[in-house]
């Protein structure tokens, strides 16, 4: 459970490089609960930021605290990971596993208490609407169903920090609506950060958002605040106009 006194994510001057290319350039971010959307064009650094927050990548420089711990330290990184849920942009999977086994496998790797694993797995699968496919092998599922399996493994341990990279990609409209409800529910007791290209997802489910461009945060606020900046921007909705307006302004 995230308390108000300890931010789930606290980054200052966070920099990330891959080779000689700077992907994140001095990110300052503080998030304490709720559902936070990360928006930005391709190559803005959203996925790299989420991978850094998920402890896949170690920061090149800057300060980072996750759930009150320093991910650079091995013992603290383990503590973070116990309370973490992560859905990568491209979900790899073992095709011979059943839905239940795949989620159970990650529940075990998340070191959940043994007696809680099976009920938690069943609950997670139920929450993503795959209870009737629990015994299906992953190789028989559609892309959208696989995405939901990925979400199930991310939420199976009721994480305090839930990181979802383009979670709605491949979901049909009905599933996206259900997923937004799941997001709002998860945001009641955890910090949820989602990276997405779908502005309507942010509008519908996020309580706060950040707009990235060129490895920097160019806007931070609520979806309503971004909408209000939309005058002169391009787009079908106020949020889209705000999005394009801020990007245009940030690029000078």
């Amino acid at each position: 459970m995230v308390t108000n006194t300890t931010p789930s994510v606290a980054a200052r001057g966070l920099t990330q490089r891959i080779g000689r290319t700077t992907i994140l350039n001095g990110i300052d971010l503080q998030i304490s609960g709720g559902v936070v959307g990360l928006l930005g064009p391709n190559g803005a650094g959203k996925t790299t930021l989420l991978r850094t927050l998920a402890t896949v990548l170690s920061p090149a420089s800057g300060e980072l605290q996750l759930l009150g711990h320093d991910p650079r330290r091995s013992s603290e990184r383990t503590a973070i990971r116990r309370r973490l849920g992560y859905l990568p942009q491209h979900l790899g999977y073992y095709p011979g596993f059943t839905v239940f086994e795949f989620v159970e496998y990650f529940a075990l790797l998340k070191e959940m208490p043994a007696d809680e694993v099976r009920p938690a797995v069943a609950r997670a699968i139920e929450r993503v609407g795959l209870a009737d496919r629990a015994k299906s092998k992953l190789k028989t599922l559609s892309g959208g169903m696989l995405r939901r399996v990925g979400i199930a493994q991310a939420i199976v341990n009721d994480p305090d920090l839930l990181l979802l990279d383009e979670p709605t990609a491949g979901l049909d409209p009905e599933q996206r609506v259900l997923f937004r409800a799941l997001l709002r529910d998860a945001g009641q007791h955890a910090t949820v950060i989602i990276s997405t290209h779908l502005i309507e997802d942010v509008a519908a489910a996020c309580t706060a958002m950040a707009l990235l461009d060129g490895g920097r945060i160019v806007f931070r606020g609520t979806p309503d605040e971004l909408s209000q900046l939309g005058d002169g921007g391009i787009g079908d909705s106020a949020l889209e106009r705000g999005y394009t307006r801020v990007l245009t302004g940030a690029r000078g």
Partner: peptide, 12 residues
């Protein structure tokens, strides 16, 4: 199978 990222985020 490009699953290393996901596995690396588990505490095990």
């Amino acid at each position: 199978r490009a699953i290393t990222d996901l596995l690396s985020t588990t505490p095990h």
